[in-house]
């Protein structure tokens, strides 16, 4: 499947600080790609580079076949961008904002606009500055969806919204996912898991993994080993966050392959009386990786201090 967005060795430096380092990702056309990562991981920087708001210092980003640095003017007729931090036409009413943007897009669909307005229950005559955060986000959605963009890029669109508004926006994204490639960053992992087809995990400016959601959920397992008399000394790299308490040994397996992995665990832990492999929701995977990252960073800091 062709990529609607891809990056190759993408890097961005702010002075001496590396915000992005060698980021490679591919977003297949028609997919819903969720970019996750902790605060300061570089998600917003990556999105700003994709949108040519920031220029990369190394590598390249390609959106709809165009180098991101060439994305200007009419090229944005096919791209929708929504960010929680972006300024809006606060002085204008919702209706006037839509009237203003409409002529910029030859593909603007008035019937879709009306449908979205109705779905979101947006007051046309209210000024944007008088709308709640959720309503403003809905207005931004309408102004970026009504022209049926080939790609929608969303930077934390769901953060700080109440569950009802979140559901409405996710529902709307789902409705349009068949005709639009969606690339979004979010902390709302439970919500993302329900509709994203691909996921990328950014940590300290590096892409830890970028893959299909089904493959990610399939390869992570929370392993619990009961009644053991000892702990394995050397563990494979794909076992992490190991901990032992009250005769129970727990760890995360990041390359679970069904029977093959279960046999491997039994072989390495022959004294185990009971072993269970539990599938993990995206949130637990995210937290486990973040915890492993913190341990690695702490070890690195201790190493540097020593």
């Amino acid at each position: 499947m062709a990529s609607a967005i891809y990056t190759e060795h993408l890097s961005k430096q702010f002075g001496r600080t590396a915000a992005l380092t060698d980021v490679d990702l591919a977003v297949p056309a028609g997919s819903v790609y969720a970019l996750v990562g902790g605060n300061g991981a570089g998600k917003t920087t990556l999105i700003k580079v994709l949108m040519n708001i920031l220029r990369p210092t190394g590598g390249q980003a390609v959106v709809l076949g165009m180098n991101s640095e060439a994305l200007i003017g009419e090229k944005f007729r096919q791209i929708g961008y929504i960010s929680e931090n972006q300024e809006m036409l606060d002085w204008a009413t919702v209706g006037r904002m839509l009237d203003y943007f409409r002529p910029f897009y030859p593909t603007w669909d008035r019937s879709l606009e009306r449908r979205l307005l109705q779905q979101f229950d947006l007051p046309l005559k209210r000024k944007l500055k008088h709308l709640s955060r959720g309503m403003r986000m809905k207005a931004a959605f309408v102004s970026s969806m009504a022209y049926r963009p080939a790609v929608m890029v969303l930077d934390e669109p769901l953060s700080g919204l109440d569950p009802f508004v979140r559901d409405e926006l996710v529902e709307s994204l789902r409705d349009h996912a068949s005709e639009t490639t969606v690339f979004l960053s979010s902390h709302d992992l439970a919500e993302i898991e329900s509709f994203a087809t691909h996921v990328g995990f950014l940590e300290q400016g590096r892409m830890l993994f970028s893959e299909e959601m089904a493959s990610l959920l399939g390869r992570f397992r929370a392993v619990t080993v009961g009644m053991i008399t000892g702990i394995p000394g050397e563990m494979p790299a794909e076992w992490f966050n190991a901990e032992s308490a009250d005769g129970v040994f727990r760890f995360i397996h990041s390359k679970y392959l069904g029977d093959e992995s279960e046999a491997e665990v039994r072989a390495r832990l022959p004294w185990a009386t009971e072993i269970s492999f539990e599938p993990m929701p995206l949130r637990s995977i995210f937290l486990a990786i973040a915890k492993a990252g913190q341990i690695r960073s702490a070890a690195l800091r201790e190493g540097t201090a020593a």
Binding site: K48, M51, N52, I53, L54, I72, G73, E74, K75, F76, R77, I79, Y81, S83, N85, Q86, E87, M88, L89, F101, F104, Y105
Partner: peptide
Amino acid sequence: GDKQFWLTRPYDW
């Protein structure tokens, strides 16, 4: 700045 709405709209400079 990098928060202006027009940066990501089909504005012709």
